[in-house]
Amino acid sequence: MPIHAPHDHLYSSVKLETAKAKLTHAGRKSLYAPLNLVAYIDMMTMLVIFLLMSFSATGEILFVQKNIVLPDAQNWTDLERAPVIGVSKDVVTLDGSQVATADDLMKDSATGDFKIPELHDKLVTLKNNYKLLHPGEDFNGIAIIQSDKNVEFKMLKKIMYSVAVAGYQNVNFAVTPRAKGGGPLIQ
């Protein structure tokens, strides 16, 4: 009877190859799992398309002020860079700084002069600055009035008069754009 070198052996019900795999951890499930990125890329693509559609090259010219509710209009045009006069029920501001109060404007002037001195002077300064900074260009004379929809014309006419006296002949009114059909504009 030949002599054999001793080797691994188990019960006959256990396969030797399976036991080896268990002992050497070769049969463990891999830790690397592929991530399914299709849904993520779909979401990012849709987000980019939505943001590109609502992109505005001119940037944000007017900021919606908390105490000003704008009226809406169908026949609107895009905004341009110009001095912004904010008119709420309480105060009048020029580019964010207060130039008059509503109480002052609602009073009847004793002299009949509608001019608001502080607003007029600041607008003239802005006009002169524009001419200095853009020597080759004509001054377009545009001023934007961002007024609350419940403000009375008595206030507005004094502001418009001051604006006109300061040399701004094109007064634009900020509005909320509305679609031609009458519904809200979706951009």
């Binding site: 045009t77 094109n170 009114f173």
Partner: peptide, 16 residues
């Protein structure tokens, strides 16, 4: 992104 879409209504002033 510009979230508030605002526009303008043009008017002219005669006089002065």
């Amino acid at each position: 992104a510009v979230w508030s879409q605002l526009a303008r209504l043009e008017a002219h002033q005669k006089g002065q």
